[in-house]
């Protein structure tokens, strides 16, 4: 047991500590403090040194850079939920995490780096092709979030790196229709049993320019397949009914829930069918419920 902890005051200091000691960052602590708790009156015990990064203001921002919305890793779910510039699905996912008190602590960086298959934010983020930027004392790199998360609770984070920010590319033209739904273990303050995010962009003639969807809690990591999405792309909304089953079967094959498979598969199928049927019906609502 190593009992070392640091409270860096700047990002630079944090990166130096990270490089020198390999200390793991603790942001909101809502995953780490729970995972390593040892009961009342006992200091949680971590198998590695820890640095508390929750006060690094440098990591708390939401801004527009060109065609991207960029969210600093230390931004809380509460700040994300409150910011109208954040795309709908991400904002909604943030607003449905835990409860008020959790969202005031939990960060996007923690949610992404914890890489739980049940985490909520990676679902719409991966659907939108979000990228992550990682920094170290010696440089930085940017990669797709879908590549950064390598498996359940596994990421490609290097020992000297920190997550700096999450970058969400905004679609050229706003989605015509979006869907986000979380099924929790109860109506509030709940971990996801399943979540599904989907979006479609139609051109003026009703052709599907872009379709995308991603599932949480349905496999070792967020389930998404651009191959399967292609089944719908280029089709006219009027053709949806005829390709729906083929699409749903193909989508089903990318899910690998380890528990409650029937429930997770069937609910996903129904939600996607519902979303696409609404789209096909010519609904004017951008947000489909």
């Amino acid at each position: 047991m190593v009992e070392t902890s640091y409270i860096p005051q700047t990002l630079e200091e944090a990166l130096r500590i990270r490089k020198e000691t390999g200390a793991k960052p603790l942001a909101g602590g809502t995953d780490l403090m729970v995972m390593h708790r040892r009961g009342t009156g006992v200091v949680p015990s971590f198998p590695w040194p820890v640095m508390i990064i929750s006060s690094l203001e440098e990591l708390k921002y939401i801004r527009r850079e060109g065609d991207d919305i960029v969210i600093g890793s230390g931004t809380t779910c509460h700040a994300i939920e409150d910011d109208p510039s954040v795309p709908y699905a991400v904002r909604t996912a943030a607003s449905l995490m835990g409860a008020e008190s959790l969202r005031n602590l939990a960060t996007i960086g923690g949610n992404v780096c914890n890489a739980s298959p049940k985490a909520d934010l990676p679902v719409p983020l991966i659907m939108m092709d979000a990228k992550v930027t990682l920094v170290s004392a010696t440089g930085s790199r940017t990669l797709l979030l879908d590549e950064f998360i390598t498996g359940p609770k596994e990421t490609d984070l290097k020992d000297d790196e920190l997550l700096l920010e999450v970058r969400i590319p905004l679609p050229e033209k706003d989605y015509s229709h979006v869907w986000y739904r979380k099924i929790g273990t109860r109506k509030a303050n709940a971990i996801s049993k399943l979540s599904l995010s989907a979006a479609v962009t139609l051109d003026a003639d009703g052709f599907i320019k872009d379709f995308r969807s991603a599932n949480g809690a349905s496999g070792p990591k967020v389930a998404r397949s651009t191959e399967v999405e292609k089944i719908l792309e280029g089709k006219n909304v009027t053709e949806i009914p005829s390709v729906l089953e083929q699409f749903l079967d193909a989508y089903d094959a990318i899910l690998s829930p380890h528990a409650m498979p029937t429930y997770r598969r069937l609910s996903t199928r129904r939600m996607l069918a519902h979303f696409l049927t609404e789209v096909a019906s010519g609904t004017q609502n951008m947000i489909v419920t």
Binding site: A99, T185, R186, K187, A188, N189, A190, I191
Partner: peptide, 11 residues
């Protein structure tokens, strides 16, 4: 309380 689920104010 994270896996034994009791009602919240919203249920």
């Amino acid at each position: 309380l994270s896996d034994y689920i009791i009602p919240t104010s919203m249920d």
